[in-house]
């Protein structure tokens, strides 16, 4: 049994890291908004999904214009991902304006903001389904592939107890782009003026506004950055996994939120780590759950696994692995 698990390990690592980086970037969107507004932005998963659809829409457009053959794939990819990120970022800002800001002004209870975010997520899902179904006749879209060269890591010849791991060239793209995004965000938050303003608002909104920080603008910037990252990750997801449908955002969103909670919500580096860890755990579970339990539970329980982690973390260590415990003041 152990031998079997070890044999699969390289492939599990490759798949887990891919998924983990996707979770990490989406988790950042949750954690940034939560850090500032203390709101679970349910719509964030669907912004990720919209990004995937916008990206595939651009790819189809480029194909129909005949640009794909004349331009190198990497350039097409860069144009698509940047355009999609800008659009989803704008959407994030618009959603905050329409759905959350009026509530904030009114000082409405947090429950209400949560409910509007669920509503927005439903609206996005159905709008995307409608457009996709209208244009292609089916809401499940298979995206054109850009990077589908398959590599094999021949690890078996060096260490014979491992099986070989296979990956597509899109894996490298996902890896490189997400790492650039993560580092870029970390620099943005920790080194720039806007980043400092964001941290200040997250710490104490009222005092920050007294220090001449325009709180509403900082919140808008936060939504823009989070949503743009989410949308860009959607494009990466589409390239990596090929098939997308309007409901991928929901389950992936919850898992990304789990990752954010795991790392300590509001903590950006924690979210990166939590995402990576969750991706690895999930892929490990998917590959080995049936071996470990002797066939009692198959890989269909991997989602249950993620939810159980979420519930356990929330119950026993709600501040996450890297967060600080807060005391509620009366």
């Amino acid at each position: 049994m152990l031998q079997h698990i070890i044999q699969l390990l390289p492939q599990v690592l490759v798949d887990g890291i891919t998924l983990g980086f996707v979770y990490a970037v989406v988790a950042i969107g949750y954690t940034m908004v939560y850090g500032i507004l203390e709101l679970i932005n349910f719509a964030h998963g669907d912004i990720f999904m919209t990004g995937a659809f916008i990206g595939s829409g651009f790819l189809f457009l480029f194909i129909s214009l005949g640009l794909m053959s004349s331009l190198p794939a990497l350039l097409v990819f860069l144009i698509v991902i940047i355009l999609s990120a800008m659009i989803t970022g704008g959407m994030g800002v618009a959603i905050e304006r329409v759905a959350y800001r009026p509530l904030r002004k009114r000082n409405a209870p947090k429950l209400i903001a949560l409910i509007t975010s669920i509503g927005i997520s439903f609206i996005l899902e159905d709008l995307v389904r409608f457009i996709a179904e209208w244009k292609t006749g089916n809401y499940i879209v298979t995206a054109p592939s850009l990077f589908n060269h398959t590599f094999t890591i021949d690890i078996h010849s060096i260490m014979p107890f491992f099986n070989n791991a296979k990956f597509q060239s899109s894996f490298i793209v996902v890896l490189v782009v997400t790492i650039i995004m993560l580092i870029g965000l970390d620099l943005f938050v920790n080194k720039t003026k806007w980043g400092m303003a964001m941290r200040a608002v997250a710490q104490d909104r009222e005092t920050a506004s007294l220090m001449t920080i325009n709180v509403n603008r900082v919140i808008s910037v936060t939504f823009f950055v989070g949503s743009a990252l989410g949308g860009a990750t959607g494009v990466l997801f589409m390239l990596q996994y090929g098939t997308i449908d309007p409901y991928i955002g929901f389950i992936l969103g919850i898992k990304a939120f789990t990752a954010a909670v795991l790392g300590g919500i509001g903590n950006i580096r924690g979210a990166m780590f939590g995402g990576l860890m969750l991706g690895l755990i999930e892929m490990f579970a998917a590959a080995n759950l049936s071996t470990l339990t002797g066939g009692l539970f198959g890989s269909e329980y991997k989602d249950v696994f993620a939810f159980i982690i979420l519930i356990l973390v929330l119950i026993f260590k709600p501040e996450g692995l890297f967060g600080k415990a807060t005391i509620e003041k009366v």
Binding site: F122, I123, D126
Partner: peptide, 8 residues
């Protein structure tokens, strides 16, 4: 979903 979303 769209209608429920709008209602919410």
């Amino acid at each position: 979903r769209f209608i429920f979303g709008i209602l919410l």
